[in-house]
């Protein structure tokens, strides 16, 4: 077990937990924020896997643009899932 393995396992566990939170939240806004956190951590994973191009793209799109688009959609519909 080197440092790479330990850090990746921790980050992967956080990713899966945030995905489960995004799945189970009744509040769609909280689900969108959990999705943004997941994208940010996945971009760190991309950087650790030696893919800096993909990491930049994921950080710019997953954490900013995709969340903004979801929040605009929630604003013009409704916030709570029944």
């Amino acid at each position: 077990m080197d440092l790479f393995t330990i850090v990746s396992i921790i980050l992967i566990i956080i990713t899966v937990i945030t995905a489960i939170i995004a799945a189970e939240m009744k509040d769609l806004l909280s689900a969108a924020i959990a999705l943004g956190i997941m994208s940010l951590i996945v971009s760190i994973l991309f950087y650790m896997l030696q893919a800096p191009d993909v990491a930049i793209t994921e950080a710019a799109i997953g954490a900013a643009l995709s969340m903004a688009v979801v929040i605009f959609a929630i604003r013009s519909t409704e916030r709570w899932e029944k």
Binding site: P52, D53, A55, I56, T57, A60, I61, A64, L65, A68
Partner: peptide, 25 residues
């Protein structure tokens, strides 16, 4: 900067365009 230096450093047209769109955001 990201998309002009796309052939030299990490980055390129796709991330550069996303960064520009986030500036407008």
């Amino acid at each position: 900067y990201i998309f002009i230096h796309g052939h030299l450093t990490p980055g390129g047209g796709f991330p550069g365009g996303a960064v520009i769109a986030s500036a407008f955001l």
